[in-house]
Structure formats: C-alpha cells, structure tokens
Amino acid sequence: MKLVLATALSLLAAPVMAQDSILNVSYDIARELFVEINPAFAAKWKADTGRDVSIDQSHAGSSRQARAILEGLPADVVTFNQVTDIDVLAEGGLLADDWREKFPNEASPYYSLPAFLVREGNPKNIDDWDDLTAEGVQVVFPNPKTSGNGRYTYLAAYAWALNTGLDDAGAQDFVKKLFANVPVFDTGGRAATTTFAENGIGDVLVTFEAETAGIAQQYADQGFVRVTPPTSLLAEFPVAVVDEVAEQKGTTEVATAYLDFLYSPEAQEILAKRSFRVHDKAAIEAHEFPEVNLLTVENLLGGWEGVAANHLAEGGILDRVFVNQ
C-alpha cells in the first residue's frame, strides 16, 4: 500500500519539477546569498545551453544538513562551511574522497572568518577574543555540535589561545570560560542571529564576517557595531557535487556547472558585495575588507583530520569543554 502511495505521490509532485532541477543543500546563513546567485546562474545556463534550470535551496546548520543527506535528502550539490561535513559524506560513500581536488582553491570558492557584532557604542569594549571571556559579557553563537559556524567560533577561540602562546590545557581553559559566557546555543547561525538581534540577548554575536555585515545592514536602526578581531581563523566554504545523487538524477553536468559558476567573476562580485572574501582580484578590490591576521586549521590545529580526531570525535576536547560545563 505504501508503495502505491509513494508512487501516486511522486506522480503528484512530478509537474512541479520541470526541466533541469537541482537541490543545493547549504549552511544556515547562506539563504540570501543563494537567492541572489541562483537566478544569475539560471540566466547563464540558459544562455549556454538553452535549457531552463530551477535551483531549490535547503538551509540549516551544516552538520545537520550532512546528516540529512546521509539519511537520503537528495542533494545534488552541497555548499557547506566546513570540510568535515563533506568528509562525512565521502565516508558515507556519497562522493569521492578526493572531492577537494575537483574545484579550484581546494574546492572553496570563497572564505570568511569568525567576527564580532556588538551592541550600539560597543559598551563592553569588545575588540579581541579575550574580551569575550570577561566577567559579565554574554556571548551568542550557535551550537558547535550542529553548526559549522559555531564550530569555527570554537576553533578560532582555541587557535587564538594557542597563538598567544598558551598550551593545550590553557587553550581548553580559555574555551571553557568562553562557553560559560554563552546563554543560548541555537542549532544554526540564523537562529543565533535572531536571538541576538530580535530577542535582544547577549552583548556580542560571533558569526561569519559576512553575516555581521548583513545583520548590521538589516538592523540599521539598532546601531550594531561590526568588530573584526585583529586575529581570527580562516573559514573555508567548501563545495562538492554529491556524485551518487547527481548520477542517479542525471544532473552531474548542471551541478558541476553550478559550482564552477561560483568561481566566475559575476558570482565572485556578488559574494564580495555580501562581504565574503573571494579570490577574484577585481571583486576584492571593489569592496573594502579590514586587515586581519588569519590563522589556519592546518597550521595550528593539525589539519581537519587532527580537528576531527582530537576535537570533534566523541569524548574529544569539544565534548569535554561543551557538554560537561
């Protein structure tokens, strides 16, 4: 009966899916970005091939999204904010292990960094990472267990501590103090933004630089101040075609073209306009980006493999500083 039902239902849904159609499963705060990029790609695809393409979007914390794909969410492409979340898909056999070699810049068309957004006039004088652990400062960022955004914040704080000369124990203490100042852990970056901007909770929101720009603009009346710390962590935004799904749906070509498009001058300009840092010279020069010293996962944290093994694995450092506090 179920089979009949499922078939009947898929027939019912069929007219909605016309021509080329791909699903881009992405991280939480990328919604507005892809709302702008998708029509630009659709126009280009139409010009190149004469075919129409519709691009569906799904947004949530990127680890949550990876889990959903593992459970069968039919994503043709993923545009995530963390290497580990695509590695998980590779482990699940949905795409090849060497996915980082399929697109330029290790499959990361743009990058950003965890930055701060503080309330009008910066009353708590928050300029750098150690200001976040001061007594009486409330910090808002999403759950590092479900959100790549939150995980970057955690890793950035940890890397910052190591960079100041602290050892692992010292860095853990620092992160513990930071977590103790967090009143709410939302599951995605956007929910954290709502908590900070809409519900008025916390003194500082830590999220991607690009998101801080977007919120400052959207809530201009609240006078939020963007603070880019002198030192932060390079946040890459890796992309991949989910081979298994794309092959089954016959969308490999359009999916690949879609991701290639993210590297084109046109898309890079859209990205830079939205305060993502890009590799395209013209785009980066057309917009202003504050100077920042970027630490990397490779240099300080033993690469993504080291991060996965030491920090994110069950019972790892994140578990110890996060869950047990």
Partner: peptide
C-alpha cells in the same frame, strides 16, 4: 532513513520517502 531499517531497500529502488511528500504524509 538511508541507514534505517527499510530505507536502503526503498532508496535503491528509487523510492524517496523521507524529505519528500510521502514522509510528511
């Protein structure tokens, strides 16, 4: 789910239950 009891069998046959209307129903 893809890692669930019936999911693998159904997905192999191209039947999508979760993340589609049948699952919601």
């Amino acid at each position: 789910g893809r890692q669930g009891l019936l999911g693998p069998l159904l997905l192999e046959n191209g039947i999508q239950i979760l993340f589609a209307i049948p699952g919601i129903v």
